[in-house]
């Protein structure tokens, strides 16, 4: 398994629409992941307010003691963020790739209602492949 602990996707109003855990220690229940996701949404917004110069688009990378959090915001306001081991490479490429998967398998799914939780089998399958260590390295090339 790659050095990725979990992946979150939040819609433009901060609601969690997708959460995948890839082997982090300690249980986190559904309520906790929902609250963390909306907390991240607000922190992302506040960080734009505090910028010393114009044109800030929010936090890209948060470096904590035991993990790194990489965040990618699409033009429509959907945020993708991945929690990984400190110093993991190619996370921007992975997030872009996940965004591609999201557009291909979620947005193009006629049964998917926009801004609602994601339940698409094909997306799950492709995502599991994408977060494998080997594929992350390939993305970096």
């Amino acid at each position: 398994m790659a050095a990725i602990f979990s992946l979150y996707i939040i819609n433009k109003s901060g609601g969690l629409i997708f959460y995948k855990d890839c082997g982090s220690t300690g249980r986190m229940d559904t309520n906790d992941s929902l609250r963390l996701a909306s907390l991240w949404h607000s922190m992302h917004a506040i960080s734009q307010q505090l910028s010393p110069v114009n044109g800030c688009t929010g936090i890209d990378l948060l470096q904590a003691d035991t993990f790194d959090l990489h965040c990618f915001q699409s033009l429509t306001g959907t945020k993708f963020f991945v929690v990984c081991k400190p110093g993991t490479q190619h996370m921007e490429a992975l997030l872009k790739h996940i965004y591609e998967l999201y557009t291909d398998y979620v947005l193009k799914n006629p049964f998917y209602e926009i801004e609602m939780p994601i339940r698409c089998e094909l997306f799950d399958i492709n995502l599991s492949q994408a977060v494998q260590r080997e594929s992350v390295i390939l993305l970096g090339r």
């Binding site: 602990f5 979990s6 982090s24 220690t25 300690g26 986190m28 906790d32 963390l36 907390l39 991240w40 607000s42 922190m43 506040i46 960080s47 505090l50 948060l62 904590a64 003691d65 035991t66 993990f67 959090l69 929690v83």
Partner: peptide
């Protein structure tokens, strides 16, 4: 407020500890 909340976020998100 940002620092306080980010700290509680990282404490809760910590993928290496069991009791958060």
């Amino acid at each position: 407020g940002l620092l306080f909340s980010l700290k509680s976020l990282t404490a809760k998100m910590d993928p290496t500890s069991v009791e958060k």
